[in-house]
Design a protein around this nucleic acid. Structure first.
Length: 702
DNA sequence: CAAACCCCGGCTTT
DNA sequence: AAAGCCGGGGTTTGTA
């Protein structure tokens, strides 16, 4: 799926990028051949590519998924059957034309169809045979005529699509004109054939706006057919891409009402997804999803507009029953077809889940079924906003056994999960809801917080969030109110049924397992030829923030308190004093916020700034070994060596000196006096250094 | 804890 | 059809 959308690279970059970020190796789906799909897209991607022969038979059984499941009572029309007839007809035409053209296309499907036909006549009477032959002959004639034109058009097309020396504007125009003259009356014949359709694609790309509109008009009434044609769909996608707003509106209008059928169609589903992702705004997206609710909403565009799914479902039991059946019908069919990664489906699932979670008892059966259908494919969900919401909700309401399956399927994509903008919240949900902390730790923390991976994670805006959760819970300022309330919602859902352990206990368990792993991986950056080094990490604001947060996390773990934390603090201390502070490459000069890191360590959790009193105050019982006053005293000793202080007060270092001085003033009068004396000697320097805010603050504090 | 800043989607412009 | 503006949200920063 992710592959599928890459092709539209020129437009809609935003949504495309979003998708590209997360690329779970698509779990090979039983029926569908993702690879074939990719080939399809690739060969349709641009006109300047290799032979069209690669577009071969992923077609077989394409309409099998289109059979309306019995759940769609609202669909009185039986168009699915009708459509597959059409498909067959198209295929035959295709086959004929290709034979005529002696196109050495090894289309396996054509082969199958031919074989089927060869077997067919034996069963028929000779009268029928004659009739059939006459019909065939007529068709062939018809085709030969078009076939000849196709040949000529293709010659022109070859010239138009070359890229090595791109044709000049005039030539392009001339070629387009000629092609158009030849094809304008037979567009419909062209667009459903794989090679001829590509001619039209190229035409669309190079011709004028006016003619594009003409083509769009010429195809009016046939867009559904186009969307469900294995070759036509590429053209349709191209038209959407290059077409005007009005063209798009026309097409959307025509497809409107057929979305559910399209979604169940192998080719159609891609068109719908494309439309949804690339060419629809928020409102149109909503409207599209509403079609999945049922016929009423499919026929009347505005039906249910501005109402949430819960409003609608609350209106009557019958309505609810119907909508839920329809939704699950479309969703289950699409999952089975391997379209789990489609964004539009995620949106539909979100509606479905919203209702499911509105009353867990009442929907128990549906919940179990839904999770069962989806559990193995969770990785396909978590890279979109809505998909991730669905995933988190389901994790929250899953029972212990179901959670195990879900965790197993997410575990294989751990890195993508944690680094993804939305996926990381799913991981946090797992941290917050699953009682089996041993399993969660083994599946994620132990796998991800390795020396190889951790440095990458702590400097990643999204990946560090689950890490920060492990350190500080939701309390810190690292989570926006919106995310917080969402996570809290999952938490409440979880406690309604499966989850039993108190939150603090679960977090403590996860933390006690993960902290040593994190420490060790971080310490690994201080030794050997590790890349990045700790100093490099500390030069990145996000990573530095994490390191401070880690050190300031209180723990009972003996190993951390007596060995790991001291080593890490030592390492930072060494980095600070390894080189002359006046050198450009010293961290303090390279990254202004390193002074904040040091300040945070100097104050530890022991002191905080009192905004009322305008001074630093001690916080009782918050001491953490190695940092706070202990670290301050250590720095003070180093600063009092030789002329160190004179250098430190000149730049960002002044803030550090100030922090040390303030802390010692509270806890170590003697040493603070020493520093005070030393600073006073530098008074004149400080007074001169007017644009150094740190220096000025230092003066004030004396 | 507020101001500055950045990123993104939607809209307008040439 | 690409480039550019605008507003909103989220993030980062600045330092009493």
């Amino acid at each position: 799926m992710a592959k599928g959308v890459k092709r539209t690279a020129t437009k809609g970059n935003a949504s495309e990028n979003k998708r590209a970020k997360f690329k779970p190796q698509p779990v090979p789906q039983p029926a569908s051949s993702l690879e074939n799909e990719a080939t399809f897209y690739e060969s349709a991607e641009d006109d300047s590519d290799k032979s069209s022969g690669s577009e071969s038979g992923s077609e077989s059984g394409s309409d099998s998924g289109a059979e309306s499941s019995s759940s769609d009572e609202l669909d009185s029309d039986n168009e699915t059957g009708e459509k597959s007839d059409e498909d067959e007809e198209i295929d035959e035409l295709d086959e004929l034309s290709e034979n005529d053209e002696e196109n050495a296309d090894s289309d396996t499907e054509s082969g199958e169809k031919a074989a089927a036909k060869a077997a067919d006549p034996n069963k028929k009477s000779s009268a029928e045979q004659h009739a059939e032959q006459r019909k065939l002959l007529a068709e062939r004639k018809l085709n030969r005529k078009s076939g000849a034109e196709v040949e000529r058009i293709k010659l022109l097309w070859e010239k138009l699509r070359v890229t090595k020396p791109p044709p000049s504007k005039e030539i392009k125009e001339k070629l387009c004109n000629e092609i158009w003259e030849l094809s304008k009356d037979i567009v419909l014949d062209l667009v459903l054939k794989h090679d001829a359709s590509r001619v039209v694609q190229t035409l669309i790309k190079h011709t004028t706006k006016l003619r594009r509109d003409l083509i769009v008009q010429a195809l009016k009434g046939n867009y559904y057919k186009l969307a469900t044609s294995s070759y036509g769909k590429y053209l349709l996608v191209k038209i959407l891409h290059y077409g005007s707003k009005e063209s798009r509106a026309l097409i959307v209008d025509e497809l409107h009402g057929n979305l559910r059928k399209l979604m169940r169609h192998k080719e159609g589903a891609y068109v719908v997804e494309d439309l949804f992702v690339l060419y629809s705004g928020a409102q149109q997206k909503q409207q599209m999803v509403r079609e999945f609710w049922g016929s009423e909403y499919a026929v009347f565009k505005d039906s249910g507009k501005d109402k949430s799914i819960l409003d609608i479902v609350g209106e009557s039991a019958e309505k609810k029953q119907l909508i839920m059946t329809n939704l699950s019908g479309t969703i289950v069919a699409s999952i089975a077809k391997g379209s789990t990664g489609f964004q539009i489906l995620h949106a539909a699932m979100k509606d479905y889940v919203t209702v499911l979670t509105s009353d867990l008892e009442k929907h128990d059966l549906q919940i179990r079924e839904f999770i069962d259908a989806l559990a193995e494919q969770f990785a396909e969900l978590v890279h979109t906003q809505e998909g991730a919401e669905v995933a988190s909700s389901l994790i929250a309401i899953a029972n212990a056994k179901e959670r195990k399956t879900i965790i197993r399927s997410l575990k294989t994509h751990g890195k993508e999960l944690i680094k993804n903008e939305y996926g990381n919240a799913v991981l946090i949900t797992l941290f917050m809801t699953v009682d089996d902390t041993v399993l969660v730790h083994k599946s994620f923390s132990a796998e991800l917080f390795t020396p190889e991976l951790l440095p990458e994670l702590v400097q990643d805006k999204f990946a560090r969030r689950p890490l920060l959760y492990l350190l500080t819970g939701l309390a810190g300022r690292y989570f926006s109110p919106k995310i917080k309330s969402e996570l809290t919602r999952y938490e409440m859902l979880a406690y309604a049924k499966t989850t039993k352990k108190p939150q603090e206990q679960r977090l403590a368990e996860l933390q006690s397992k993960a902290l040593p792993v994190i420490y060790k991986s971080l310490l690994a950056t201080t030794s050997g030829d590790s890349e990045p080094t700790l100093a490099q990490l500390l030069a990145l604001n996000v990573a530095a923030q994490f390191v401070t947060e880690l050190i300031l996390t209180k723990t009972d773990d003996e190993e951390i308190n007596s060995k790991l934390r001291p080593q890490l603090v030592d390492a930072i201390f060494d980095i600070t004093f390894a080189s002359d502070i006046l050198e450009d490459f010293h961290l303090l000069n390279k990254t202004p916020f390193f002074s904040r890191t040091l300040k945070a360590l100097i104050q530890g959790n022991e002191f905080k700034w009192d905004n009322e009193a305008k001074k630093l105050v001690a916080v009782d019982g918050a001491e953490i070994p190695q940092v706070g006053s202990e670290f301050a005293a250590r720095l003070a000793d180093a600063l009092l060596q030789d002329k160190a202080l004179a250098k430190w007060v000149t730049g960002q270092g002044a803030f550090v000196v100030l922090a040390v001085y303030e802390v010692l003033t509270i806890l170590d009068k003697e040493k603070s006096l020493e520093i005070r004396k030393a600073i006073k000697k530098l008074r004149k320097d400080l007074e001169r250094d007017t644009d150094n805010k740190g220096a000025q603050l230092l003066l004030k504090s004396l």
